[in-house]
Design a protein around this nucleic acid. Structure first.
Lengths: 346, 346
DNA sequence: ATGAAAGCGCTAACAA
DNA sequence: TTGTTAGCGCTTTCAT
């Protein structure tokens, strides 16, 4: 008797077929809920599957048909907003045969391509890409290969569906709120963007545009002040440092994302300042920590969970019908007023 | 001419072989860095691969050999500690041919099994499981099927490697710190655990044990007070509500995880209390937000990044040699003192 | 060092 | 409705 039991051979569709006394085709049909299996057949096959504890190999299925797996690419696992999106995807996938796999990413086109390539190489049935950086051409190439839904990126493509928040309007809500409180020197921290296409499509660019547009609309065009860093806590910290060093300090800072606002509050604490006493601070995303008592951040709710659920629904639709025309879903943001914003002191 | 270009057939190993004028076996050898390909052969094959833009299908590879993919199961994507662990895994995988895929999980054995099953079904080469709930038997079963490294779970198995933090000692550091400041009524919020095996293996249980042991060691056995909820922000909030309602309120609260401490601070803010003025608060994990200025949480650093890097290294070792004896790596935690702890007011 | 051929577990096309 | 058969794209013997 061997010291260590050999890793028992995996149960295959052949084992199930033999055990049930039917063909492998029959088993396959039952697995795929496909047409052409009588109720009796289905019952026998299901019984055999249960008795043997059979699970189909996704690798083998991927070579001919579907893997019943979708891939989700996240730009930054530290940004809690994406957890909300994932919850929405999970909700929508519940009750289907689909599994989800994720890969964290980067701020880098090459790394992004590595992630999407890996998902395609694994024969995933569909991809959800959250705020991808890649060129339109590259995204179209991905979408030609595999059903794809892009979250957060404006600009239509006939190849892939999109789900976005109306970032332009959302930024306007923040400016209107701050201007309404009496602020004039309202600064913005955004995620540095130079690519001309991304300047028209990425959420960060649209928020910055919305900020500028709203500032002008409120007669504050001369006060426009943008610090460009990144949508990370570190970026917020660095951006705030820049803004705090201005000869005329802003009285309010609109951070392009809640995680950025965290960095702003960090820098302010370090400088002995507080919000809203010294400077009002607003974020974007309404992540869980924005509601967190000691922070209580004014922010824009963009309903991450709904975004994720919509994306998953569109993806399943597209997997079912690849020729369906591309859809664009744009959700409306709303302002959530909390304790980090107040009228200016001076 | 077709309106919509057909999704171009994927380049296969046969195309590469034909283009290079060699056999598919030769191409396969080059792909796998296997023995038996002359330098000239390697050069020709690589050139063909580049010219054709070939990438092997992980699905097809999985049917015979390896997929060069490892799966990481996360218990909770909202807990930022796990981002540190993932960074460590990513570090270690850089420069290898291995890709990482993740799946978020749950607080539920059935869902956990679904995730590990999916990873096995995808023929992943190895699994990293972070603080899994499953029974020893089940974990051993997984490890018999695929190389596995378990993070955070104490208790040895001959089948899988483990990487843990010395949670028992870490909890003791917190109690010693608080007792040293003069606190006597030091309460703890833990993650409710009833399973007898998990009570000896899970990080949360060991932290609670370490807390109790240290309390007794400091002559505070009579003051032991544990609120059992979950390791989430919500759990911290609920736990704090329980503790704040005690007839004799604690003067210090040791939350079993930083994310729990967030909930505690939330509840305190709601009750008009602050830390450390009214109650001292400590966490565990030293996540990025613990260093965050407005919070500045005293906590225990368990070096998540190193945990992840060690786990990935052990996993690659085990993939290379499945018969190697199982290893256990235990890292030592250290206390990070910040502004949420101070001597008691009374 | 190189290549021919078998086969991994499934699904799809086809026949019965 | 059911079963037979031929691959999918790789890796792995096993010849040469």
């Amino acid at each position: 008797m061997p010291e260590q039991a050999a890793p028992a051979r995996r149960v295959t569709i052949v084992d199930v077929a033999r055990h049930a006394g039917v063909s492998t085709t029959a088993v396959s049909k039952v697995l795929r809920h496909a047409y052409g299996a009588s109720p009796q057949m289905q019952a026998r096959v299901r019984a055999a599957i249960d008795e043997l504890g059979y699970r189909p190999s996704a690798a083998a299925r991927g070579m001919r048909g579907q893997t019943y797996t979708i891939g989700v690419m996240l730009p930054d696992i530290r940004n809690p907003f994406f957890a909300d999106v994932l919850d929405g995807v999970t909700d929508q996938l519940g009750g289907t045969d689909y599994q989800m796999m994720m890969a964290p990413c980067c701020n880098d086109e090459a790394a992004e391509a590595r992630v999407t390539d890996a998902m395609i190489d694994h024969s995933m049935d569909g991809l959800i890409l959250i705020a991808p950086l890649s060129s339109r051409t590259h995204l179209n190439g991905i979408a030609r290969t595999v059903p794809t839904v892009v979250i957060g990126r404006h600009g239509h493509s006939p190849r892939y569906d999109t789900v976005t928040d109306d970032d332009f309007t959302g930024a306007g809500l923040v400016v209107a709120h701050l201007a309404g409180l009496g602020h004039r020197r309202i600064a913005h921290i955004d995620h540095l963007e130079t690519d001309p296409v991304r300047l028209t499509e990425m959420p960060n660019a649209l928020r910055a545009d919305g900020y500028r547009h709203a500032m002008r609309a409120h007669g504050l065009g001369a006060e426009i002040d943008v610090a460009s860093t990144t949508y990370t806590q570190e970026g917020g910290y660095l951006g705030a440092r820049l803004l705090l060093d201005r000869r005329r300090r802003p009285t309010a800072i609109f951070a392009g994302a809640d995680i950025v606002a965290m960095g702003v509050l960090d820098a302010m604490t370090e400088a002995g300042l507080s919000a809203p006493g010294d400077i009002s601070v607003a974020g974007y995303d309404n992540t869980t920590f924005a509601a967190f008592g000691p922070i209580s951040l004014t922010t824009v709710d963009q309903a991450g969970r709904q975004i994720g659920a919509n994306a998953a629904r569109l993806l399943l639709d597209r997997i079912a019908d690849r020729e369906r025309p591309a859809a664009q879903i744009k959700l409306s943001p709303s302002l959530v007023t909390r304790r980090t914003t107040a009228p200016p002191a001076d």
